[in-house]
């Protein structure tokens, strides 16, 4: 409840933030603060320096980007959930954002902070991986884009270099006619996902023509359900076919499934099959 002392800097621009981050050993970025401050209050984190990017205007806002959207790092979950552009082009992201935490958390928590924190039980990494989003970062060596699939590298770890900051997330538009869904097994206390499943499914002539399926909450990073996607390819989309495809998800976990006092790794893996099936059913029902 009482964070340790730190030095505070408020950055006015991305360039200044990068400079401050690189000029101060152990410095951390502060955006909405909803990932970092809880850890600092419990003194599980005590960074010597915080660089507040909360006022950096260039990090805010949602804009069209080709057929997709570009979402500034400081965009809150509530803004994403309420964005007409996101709802139209990547509805599954809006759906996931509307399920993060609770209303007050959604008003303050940001997409940039969320992905940089990289909690495997968070909702957005799962959906961004399914969408094939790109995390845009800026650092001393300029800007670069990192595919979501490559961005999350381990438990609370990511592909950012030291001193690099997330500036935006580029989300490709979902193909016309594709159905999408994010379903979540919510932890009753933390509201994080015990298991979260995102599905983007295109159907042509009653047959699945493409599918992107990703599961969160089970492993230390989002799990692409490649076996499910393979089973769906060219498959029918009736209830039995979706159930059969979903059950293949058990083959997609690499043996580092997480467990805790609330849900064991065995249980999470079993639930992944259920939630993937539900996501597929909802996505197919919404498509077309």
């Amino acid at each position: 409840m009482f964070p340790s002392q730190f030095t505070y800097h408020r950055a006015a621009s991305v360039a200044e933030a990068v400079e401050l981050l690189n000029g101060n050993e152990g410095a951390k970025l502060l955006a909405g603060g909803h990932s970092l401050l809880p850890m600092m209050k419990l003194r599980l984190a005590s960074p010597p320096t915080l660089v507040d990017i909360g006022q950096v205007a260039e990090l805010k806002g949602v804009s069209a980007d080709g057929d997709g959207v570009r979402i500034g790092a400081l965009t809150t979950h509530a803004e994403i959930a309420g964005s007409a552009l996101v709802q139209e082009r990547a509805p599954v992201l809006a759906e996931a954002a509307s399920r993060v935490g609770d209303p007050a958390v959604r008003n303050r928590g940001t997409i940039g902070g969320n992905v940089a924190h990289g909690d495997p039980q968070s909702d957005l990494p799962t959906v961004l991986t399914a969408l094939g989003a790109t995390i845009n970062a800026a650092g001393q060596n300029g800007e670069r884009g990192i595919a979501a699939a490559d961005f999350f590298t381990g438990l609370l770890e990511n592909a950012l270099d030291d001193g690099e900051i997330v500036t935006s997330v580029s989300v490709p538009g979902v193909a016309s006619g594709a159905g999408t869904a994010y379903v979540k097994f919510s932890h009753p206390a933390s509201r994080y996902s015990v298991v979260g499943a995102a599905a983007i499914v295109s159907v042509a002539n009653g047959v699945c023509s493409s599918a992107s399926v990703v599961v969160g909450g089970v492993e230390s990073t989002p799990t692409r359900a490649a076996s499910v996607e393979a089973a769906l390819a060219g498959s029918g989309v009736g209830a039995d076919a979706l159930a059969a495809a979903a059950s293949a998800v058990s083959g997609d976990f690499q043996g580092d499934a997480m467990g805790d006092v609330y849900a064991s790794s065995e249980y999470r893996q079993a639930m992944a099959g259920v939630y993937v099936r539900r996501a597929l059913e909802a996505a197919v029902a919404r498509g077309g």
Partner: peptide, 25 residues
Amino acid sequence: LWEGVVYDDNGQPLTGTMQDYALPR
């Protein structure tokens, strides 16, 4: 349905915050 303190074998509480101990909402 939800509530219960859990300790590990060393007596460390695993339900030490409101993020872990599930209260009715």
